[in-house]
Design a binder for these strands. Structure first.
Lengths: 142, 142
DNA sequence: TCAATATTGATGCAGATGCATTAATCTGTA
DNA sequence: TACAGATTAATGCATCTGCATCAATATTGA
């Protein structure tokens, strides 16, 4: 392992933390919920008929108990509903409500503006493509 | 903002989360404290005479109250001491104890092995340098 | 000088996360 | 079929984090 590897890792953490903190700060300032709520709503909007919680967990790299409680909060706030399915009676199907879709559409401009400022203004399209390529190597399965 | 920018951001988060989760899992499995403790101890080892909490906060992108409590825990566990200074009587100097330095040395092999596996095995030295370069653009001040 | 403001750090309280375990159901196999 | 083991999701409890605020000291500027 070379110094470059350690340096890249340190910068990876710092860059993620900095950008994430700024996005979250912008969302909060706009009176909106955390980014994780957006991520759930975005995933749900991509599939017809909702998603199983365990699929959301896997997609978002989030532990099971954490997703369970995130969905509790989102359901209590009226942005998603959980319904059982005859198909597998252990599980559930999570769907976004109308309010959920509306929230997603309301969060995006704030999120987008933060990404413009923190990412798009700092990297050319070519650089972003390169960065995505390199980062992909860290998550692709061996 | 191009799709590449959004994709790079998404991958940035996923890569960081995945690698971090694995590092933390390895540390826990080895009966060691979280990585943040290592970071504090590493910073302290780099300066003679300790560091002020507000410097540590800034270095680690951590809110003030969070650092205050992290230092509480580390102090209670005997890895750091806080001493006051006549120089600025609002503030403190944090120093690693012998046990703190020992802990840092004990954590590094576990941390290093995880970094080997998750980063160094997946990126060439040249790629790591490129990645560090690109990530730097996200944190350099405008 | 000295009052107004800024800096440094701690803390009460609410909310979120991690850990271990549980309940319910499904799957695979003898 | 029936039972052992796997999967899916929830939850009690402890810990950690975020927010607001406070106390103490330092700095600034009229």
């Amino acid at each position: 392992m070379a110094d470059e590897h350690v340096a890249a890792w340190v910068r990876l953490v710092r860059a993620r933390d900095r950008v994430m903190q700024r996005i979250e700060a912008d969302l909060k300032k706009a009176g909106l919920p955390p980014l994780a709520w957006y991520d759930v709503l975005l995933e749900l909007s991509r599939t017809d008929g909702g998603l199983r919680p365990y699929r959301l967990q896997a997609e978002m790299l989030m532990p099971q108990y954490n997703m369970s409680r995130l969905l509790d909060r989102m359901e209590k706030s009226g942005y998603v509903v959980r319904r059982t399915t005859a198909e597998d009676r252990r599980g559930q199907i999570v769907e976004a409500t109308g309010a959920g879709h509306a929230l997603r559409k309301k969060m995006w401009p704030v999120y987008r503006a933060a990404l413009e400022r923190e990412v798009a203004n700092r990297l050319s399209q070519r650089e972003a493509a390169m960065l995505g390529e390199l980062l992909g190597k860290l998550t692709d399965d061996p």
